[in-house]
């Protein structure tokens, strides 16, 4: 028996396994675009970084959009299945009846039941039993932060919020925004393009710059990157653009955070304000935690804790759920 927790992310997917293995891969799947590509690549399928690095030769798929499986495309469903198979193979799942796999998969907080049904159907035959939970709930469970806590999980496709009240969160306790890492990338790309129209760069380069240099508030250093301009490698300063793009997510996050707080029983609101956890890759945007704390001052102040190693906090939470669930529970979740 192998239990796994999976954070099936729009940009990256992580897996934590009961055998102690952990892996993270880029959520890209690609098939050789033609016979020539097939011959060059010597593979029928590429997943993760391998797919990204060879994308010019591939029919590249990013099977998740805003944290949800894209609907209506068989190829994207197949890509999601391949991505999951790949993750399972990395942690040593044998893919046979001798070693059944029990998986907990995190999805955005606002995923509708129909989205979950679609994902469940798409993953039939890939795992033996499947539990789908909201991603911020998985994070909360993994951190054992189940009471008077707010989790803000800033991923690529969505920013998810949950207020834990010592029970399984209802839809009232959760929110999802599509303002997240990808929207920062898109905005940053536009800003840089406007300032340096002759610069050549891709969204993938923009994402790497963001992951290395993101910040809100005052810069500590100038952000300078190298791009080809008319074929000549040239250094450009993108400090102001980086700040503007990263700060674009602050207002919606503050608004949602402040919108959720009044839904907490009055006597517990202060405890929740002082117990806010910033998770996900977006939580690592420099100075974001203090910026959100300043926004909390107008409602009595609060404390934001940033998860320093957010890559596996969702999948670890999923794994904790998978291990804690009883055999009788899993019998009801056969896929």
């Amino acid at each position: 028996m192998l239990s796994v927790g999976i954070d099936l992310g729009t940009s990256r997917s992580a897996i934590s396994s009961s055998n102690g293995e952990q892996f993270v891969v880029d959520s890209f799947v690609g098939w050789p675009a033609d016979l020539v590509a097939r011959k060059v690549l010597q593979k029928d399928l590429l997943v993760g970084r391998d797919a990204l690095d060879n994308r010019t030769m591939l029919e590249l798929h990013r099977p998740l959009e805003r944290g949800l499986l894209k609907e209506g495309s068989d190829r994207d469903v197949e890509a999601a299945r391949e991505l999951l198979r790949h993750l399972l193979s990395l942690v040593g799942a044998k893919g046979n009846k001798a070693q059944p796999v029990r998986a907990v998969v995190g999805v955005p907080a606002a995923a509708l039941r129909t989205n979950k049904q679609y994902l469940r159907t798409a993953l039939k035959g890939v795992v033996d039993s499947l539990m789908i939970v909201s991603e911020p709930f998985a994070v909360a469970y993994g951190l054992n932060a189940l009471l008077h806590t707010m989790i803000i999980d800033i991923g690529a496709g969505t920013t998810d919020f949950v207020v834990m009240k010592g029970r399984y969160p209802t839809e009232d306790d959760q929110r999802s925004l599509t303002i997240a890492g990808d929207s920062i990338d898109t905005y940053l790309q536009k800003l840089i393009q406007a300032k340096y129209p002759d610069a050549g760069f891709t969204i993938f380069m923009v994402r790497e710059w963001k992951e290395k240099h993101s910040f809100v508030g005052e810069p500590t250093d100038r952000v300078v990157v190298t791009v080809p301009m008319s074929g000549v490698p040239t250094q450009i300063d993108i400090t102001d653009e980086m700040r503007a793009a990263c700060e674009s997510i602050v207002a919606p996050i503050v608004e949602t955070m402040l919108d959720l707080l009044p839904h907490v029983e009055p006597e517990f609101q202060e405890r929740v304000r002082k117990n806010i956890i910033l998770a996900g890759g977006g939580g690592l945007i420099r100075n974001l935690g203090p910026t959100l704390e300043r926004a909390l001052e107008k409602v009595g102040g609060g404390k934001i804790r940033v998860i320093e190693a957010p890559v596996f906090c969702g999948s670890d939470g999923g794994l904790a759920l998978a291990k804690d669930a009883q055999d009788s529970d899993w019998d009801r979740l056969v896929n």
């Binding site: 049904q117 539990m131 939970v133 979740l333």
Partner: peptide
């Protein structure tokens, strides 16, 4: 508390499998 939360998570999944309507509020 954990056991109850976990049980509710399983119940929510079973509702998805059986196609029960989402609990309104």
């Amino acid at each position: 508390m954990k056991a109850r939360i976990l049980s509710d998570a399983v119940g929510d999944n079973v509702d998805t499998i059986t196609g029960a309507l989402p609990k309104p509020l």
